[in-house]
Design a protein around this nucleic acid. Sequence first.
DNA 1: CGCCAACTTGATGGCTGTCAAGTCAGGTGG
DNA 2: CCACCTGACTTGACAGCCATCAAGTTGGCG
Lengths: 188, 188
Amino acid sequence: MYRAGDAFAALYLVRTGLVKSIVLNEGGREQVSGFYMPGEMVGVDGIAAGKHASDAVALGDTDVCVLPYERLEKLSHRAPAIDRHLHRILSKEVVRKQSMMLLLGSLRAEERIASFLLNLSQRFTARGFSACDFVLRMTREEIGSLLGMQLETVSRVFSRMHKEGLIQIDGKHVRLLSPQGLRRMIGN
Amino acid sequence: MYRAGDAFAALYLVRTGLVKSIVLNEGGREQVSGFYMPGEMVGVDGIAAGKHASDAVALGDTDVCVLPYERLEKLSHRAPAIDRHLHRILSKEVVRKQSMMLLLGSLRAEERIASFLLNLSQRFTARGFSACDFVLRMTREEIGSLLGMQLETVSRVFSRMHKEGLIQIDGKHVRLLSPQGLRRMIGN
DNA sequence: CGCCAACTTGATGGCTGTCAAGTCAGGTGG
DNA sequence: CCACCTGACTTGACAGCCATCAAGTTGGCG
């Protein structure tokens, strides 16, 4: 959809499919900074500097709604409700990144995966899909990148959770057998 | 200043001193999510849900300017420039958290500290203070919390950098002897 | 049929967490 | 003025988690 450094012109509202965003630092290191589901807004990191701070890439077939930022601004001056909503969207993104920081800074591999799965589950539920049975549209490597670990570790943790009866996993198809067990695992 | 869960009523603009913000998860784990210097805005994570998602605590003597959010909203409808500025502040916070995610997910202890010191240096410079000679107002534990490591590791990395002639460090007084060396260290 | 990307699993080493002991500076009270 | 105490910090020893390297499996596709 766009690359880091591109001039910022619009926000993108995901309608169907999945979008990943990727940040890069000077040293060439890169990391997935988020996966965006239908109803979520991509590109808000571009407002600050007038150019995008990350890449955004659709994973598989995806529909997005392009919202030209200038028009959005004008609209929001006339309709306070829109403005307020925009503020909330931006703030929510801050909260999300903040909780990812907590995850990356203080959880171990197993806990990160548990947290990730529960987060997906919750977002699927909110969209009317099954809470405990879904298909991952991203690779192990992309999951690992988001969670700050190697793809081998992701794979191993999935296997271990499978053995312990917490989840069922077959390739990209996941079933949560014990959401409670996963939850317990995070709080130590 | 406020605690997680408190009703959100205002944003806080730091005028002098230093503020830290802390996020907590369900399991009782906590982490410093940011240090805020004069001119920076604290509390934007509260807009999303109408209540704060983190604690904010002043480190030492600190002045803040309280900006009641309702008034800020009304103001911004009349003055588009203010509205745009508010958007940029929110977006900048997203960018900051995003680069912290990258730091936490893909850098090693030495690189994190180097990155932290250079970031401080840059922000001091922007405020007219010395770029290479400053006093840390936070403890090793707070630094470690922000960077996702233990206070012992912070201490060890400082010592190692000192031995290698990259920095001079005496308690909380830091001098960067080779910002270039620190920069090189991050890009591998 | 062969190729390739994605994934799984094993072996090994290193970074950093953890536990422990000791130093240092500042503050309090006798 | 000194003893004492406490919090912040430093340094060492050791273990554990996870990265890294490597090899093998699977499934999809031309």
